[in-house]
Design a binder for these strands. Structure first.
Lengths: 347, 347
DNA sequence: CTGAAAGCGCTAACAA
DNA sequence: TTGTTAGCGCTTTCAG
């Protein structure tokens, strides 16, 4: 598309005829320093001058040039969010909650969020942000390394990576999977199937491992045909349940690694007239609000994505301010949310 | 949260010890101008010097300071995306496709996307972007006015506003609603119900109006109880269909103003064992890929959200470059996509 | 409490 | 083909 990175357009370039701090100073009849002071809420400005400046700002509709501020200040109060760009990611509760959480935190901290959708190959320019948040690290470790090498603080969400030297905020996915298994086992189930998340993601793999471990602890075997390797999509969930339903020995409970998949399974079961939880119990993962509004309220494992995202921003804010230099490693516990979709096994 | 806008942190501030263009120049033993030239792909640099500079850049892991570039260039090659922040918006196909489209275009044009989630009240600083895209304008006309007043080009998606003086790229929602009505009528339906989108959005209102008009043209009456005022959410759709199902005179077809709502209706009908399209026909709006993977492939009205978003970015790119000063007004036609969920009415 | 002046890192005349 | 130099708009010493 783009032949070259060069900007040729000089001649007819549109310089926004922005009013500058100088215009404000002129109108208020003070120095630009004073204007700068009121912009930045420095207390040592006389009431009178402050009023004059404020009038001028309002009159001229002056807005400070952010690039100039960043250059002069020597730091950049914006955070980058990099999201893997594979199909479907944005239709996941995961991605959305992270976007929302970051957006919310940025708004309250007056930071900007610059949003990168990445295929993992193109290097991203981290020199226009004060820090970057990786929604997940899949095929893009190099991007993290590059950012870190450039001195840009990074936080990884839901990826406890000890090698990169980046901060992370994760949920204990392993424990979540284990909890699901133990809950189902505690209800009396012996025949428990699972549709996993994308096992290429750390979260997906850990949920599955925790689940296996939970079953093992209860001496429950997990036959191969009870495992469907999914990718968090509704489509996979449909294929999975269709496969399970063809088995001679039907599972009595299913653990889906995301609520969206669980919801799709519920839908298929509804279509077939199979009763939940009387005939089959379902447990999901995420605590997607959608769980509450379907034909049955879904039992699930709650993970505080929104808060994780917010916390990432706050951490970066502190680092950018120099309030901390620590690398943050935080692992939150997921919680079992019991609703209506699980019960004792039939008979 | 934040007591003041002032940055106090000077003492312990973290200046990224970024290597600058000067360091590169020193190592390559050329002037900073030459370095700037290779950064910007200016052809007039000798092979030899170019190589030296490239080596230095690689060695020092130099990345240009974007704020400095923007300040010096006098323009800012980034676009703002402002999204209404009401609950649920991000779980809509609409929002997601727009985000994806803008992200995609930004990547190929090497622009940044700065993402604003807005409640409509806080003014947004448009002085750190070259242009801004409003995903929709609901309660935030003032933000558009402010941006425009500051000389920032704006494009509104799916909101044909002639007063603001902003550019827009919209789909002809009216015609989409009309098409749905005519298609259903053409199939022989006389009892057609609808669950509308949020009528506070222009798109929602226009779809509904077009739908009414389409019915009227076919001399079909639309009784009040056949209209459920929704908001694009699955939840509303469920309430709507439950209400319709209680009517003594059941509709034989339903137009849902979004596929997500249509899909939820399908789910409820499945739960109740009602056959689609034999007993009830359903048509949606959006052409959400999810339409293809449910229990039945959904007939729908396709709107090219992704392309609209991309085109918005390209337009802004041209404006920022000074290639155009025109205000762009583009209205695209939606398309009927016939799949399996509509048929002739029973009997 | 105020202002003059020195940059921040880069681009782009203009000269050479 | 190259380098010198003057800004871009703002923040922040440092003197008053």
């Amino acid at each position: 598309m783009l032949k070259s990175n060069r900007f040729f357009w000089k001649e007819n370039m549109v310089h926004k005829k922005n009013v500058s701090i100088e215009d404000v100073a002129a109108r208020a009849d003070v120095s630009i320093t004073t204007v700068s002071r009121v912009i930045n809420n420095v207390p040592t400005v006389s009431k009178k001058n402050r009023a004059k400046v404020e009038e001028a700002i309002a009159f001229l509709k002056f807005k400070p040039n952010v690039s100039a501020q960043r250059l002069a200040r020597g730091f950049n109060n914006s955070v980058g969010l990099v999201m893997p760009g594979y199909p479907g990611i944005f239709h996941s509760f995961y991605a959305i909650e992270i976007i929302r959480g970051i957006g919310h935190a940025c708004e309250s901290l007056r930071m900007d969020m610059v949003f990168h959708i990445t295929n993992g190959f193109n290097p991203i320019n981290t020199n226009n942000v004060g820090g970057v948040i990786f929604a997940d690290v899949i095929e893009n470790r190099r991007q993290v390394e590059a950012a870190l090498a450039g001195g840009t603080p990074c936080v990884l969400i839901n990826n406890q990576d000890e090698d990169l030297g980046a901060s992370y905020i994760a949920v204990d996915n392993w424990s979540g999977g284990q909890t699901a298994a133990e809950y189902l086992a505690g209800l009396g189930h012996k025949k428990i199937a699972t549709v996993t998340g994308n096992l290429g993601t750390q979260a997906g793999a850990q949920r599955f491992e925790g689940f296996q471990s939970g079953l093992a602890a209860k001496k429950i075997v997990l036959p191969k045909e009870y495992v469907y390797q999914g990718d968090y999509s509704r489509r996979c969930a449909r294929l999975a349940i269709e496969k399970f339903l063809k088995l001679k020995d039907l599972p009595t409970a299913i653990f889906a690694a995301s609520d969206e998949m669980a919801l799709e399974i519920v839908a298929v079961l509804n279509e077939r007239g199979i009763k939940i939880p009387e005939q089959i119990s379902i447990i999901g993962f995420d605590d997607n609000p959608q769980c509450l509004f379907g034909s049955i309220a879904l039992t699930t494992i709650s993970q505080p994505l929104f808060q994780m995202a917010e916390e990432s921003v706050r951490y970066l804010y502190d680092v950018i301010q120099g309030k901390t230099k620590n690398i943050k490693k935080r692992v939150l516990k997921p919680e079992l949310v019991i609703r209506e979709s699980c019960g004792a096994p039939p008979r």
